[in-house]
Structures are given as structure tokens and as C-alpha cells.
């Protein structure tokens, strides 16, 4: 048994000597994971499904570690790699089955949803588009001058209109924006969160309506 194996063994013993969800167990699992993932001794595969397999193996093992792992039956690393190999094989098979089902469903004119597509979907972006377009127009026009008037002291260039435009409409990073308006990154990102975001929030609150009945008289 090599040094790494012995070390992992002692880490597992340490982890399992504490109750689950305790700070001591967590610290021990953190250490165990770090050593394991940095050991360079995990089997690797060069395909898209490897990371999913690794991730699921880590989850399964941390849950069953203290019940299922028996040091007398071999090293933890060997056990981990075996589980990883099996999990990877399962991932490949599941992906194949999914492809086959999709293929036959398509041929039968049914459409089966990818399980990943069934994650609770957020508001349809198309509904937001109108609001977004009005929002962008408001930033560009700033009809009440509210955005332009809210600026960093002694630097009218660093105002909420220019910040909103550069950050949200153009999509620039803070350091580029800072350079453009002649201020520091810290000052403008602070001004942005404290002063500009509430103004944007206020306009959005007053100007949003998507669909449905009129709300009851409040």
C-alpha cells in the first residue's frame, strides 16, 4: 500500500468518526475530496460524459462512504476508480438509450423532451423582449434626465445613463467602463449598485406588464 492510499484511509477514518452534516465531518470530506481530486490518480476518459460520471461517483461515494467502504477489501482509490468506470459506462448506455428513443419517437412523430429541458422554465424571453426594448430606449433617451443627473461626485461623465448603456446594452466589463468615463473600477461599480440599480429597478417596476387580467383595485 502506498503513501497516498494510507493517507486516504486515515482521512476516511477521520470523516467517518463524525456525524454527518457536522462541521468536523465537512472539514474532513473537504480534505478528502481535495486530496482525491488533486492526486492525479483518478481514471480519466476523453469524452463529454466523463465529468458527469465523476460528479455522480463523488456524490454516491460521499453519501455511502461510511457505510459501504471496507478498507480490508482494497484501497479506496481502486474502489473509487471502479465505481467511476461503472458510472461512466452507465452514462454511455443511458445516452445511447436516449438517442435510440429519440430516434424512434421522431420516426413515430412524437417528440420526447430532453430531461434537461424539463427544468422549470423561466419566463419566455420573447415576452421580455418588448420590455427590454423599451428599457434600452429609456436608457438611451433618458427623457427625465434622471439617469444622467445621478453621477459620481466631480465626474458627470460617470453617470447612471452612461454606466447603464455601457454595462447593459453594450455589455462591457467594469475596467473598460471605468477607463471610458474616467473613474476607478471601485467607484463606478459601487455607484452602480447603490445609486443606479435602484433607478433601473424603479423604472422597470413602473413599466412592466405582460399578460393576464387587470389586477384588482388595491
Amino acid at each position: 500500500m502506498d503513501e497516498l492510499t494510507l493517507y486516504l484511509q486515515s482521512l476516511i477514518q477521520e470523516a467517518c468518526s463524525h456525524l454527518p452534516a457536522t462541521p468536523q465531518r465537512r472539514k474532513a470530506i473537504n480534505l478528502l475530496l481535495r486530496v482525491l481530486l488533486k492526486s492525479g490518480r483518478l481514471e480519466t476518459k476523453r469524452d463529454d460524459l466523463y465529468e458527469d460520471a465523476l460528479y455522480k461517483t463523488m456524490f454516491n461515494l460521499t453519501e455511502t462512504l461510511c457505510d459501504k467502504y471496507d478498507p480490508s477489501r482494497g484501497s479506496f482509490l481502486a474502489w473509487f476508480n471502479t465505481c467511476l468506470r461503472n458510472q461512466h459506462r452507465d452514462e454511455l448506455r443511458a445516452a445511447q438509450r436516449h438517442r435510440d428513443r429519440k430516434q424512434s419517437a421522431w420516426q413515430g412523430h412524437e417528440v420526447e423532451l430532453d430531461p434537461l429541458d424539463q427544468v422549470a422554465s423561466p419566463i419566455d424571453a420573447n415576452l421580455l423582449l418588448d420590455t427590454w426594448k423599451s428599457f434600452v430606449q429609456w436608457i438611451k433617451d433618458d427623457p427625465d434626465h434622471r439617469l444622467k443627473a445621478c453621477h459620481i461626485e466631480n465626474n458627470p461623465e460617470a453617470n447612471c445613463q452612461s454606466l447603464a448603456y455601457l454595462r447593459l446594452v453594450v455589455g462591457k466589463e467594469w475596467q473598460e467602463i471605468a477607463a471610458e468615463v474616467g473613474s476607478t473600477r471601485g467607484a463606478i461599480s459601487s455607484h452602480w449598485s447603490r445609486k443606479c440599480q435602484p433607478l433601473l429597478q424603479e423604472w422597470l417596476t413602473q413599466n412592466q406588464r405582460l399578460f393576464g387580467e387587470e389586477s384588482y383595485d388595491r
Binding site: 422549470a120 422554465s121 423561466p122 419566463i123 412592466q208 399578460f211 393576464g212 387580467e213 389586477s215
Partner: peptide, 14 residues
């Protein structure tokens, strides 16, 4: 946007 079956969505805005 996750609703249980016994509650019916009647209006949704931002």
C-alpha cells in the same frame, strides 16, 4: 413559474 396542479395561474407579470 412552478405551479402545483390545484392552483391555476391567472396573471403573471415581471
Amino acid at each position: 413559474n412552478v405551479y402545483a396542479t390545484d392552483w391555476q395561474l391567472s396573471m403573471r407579470d415581471l
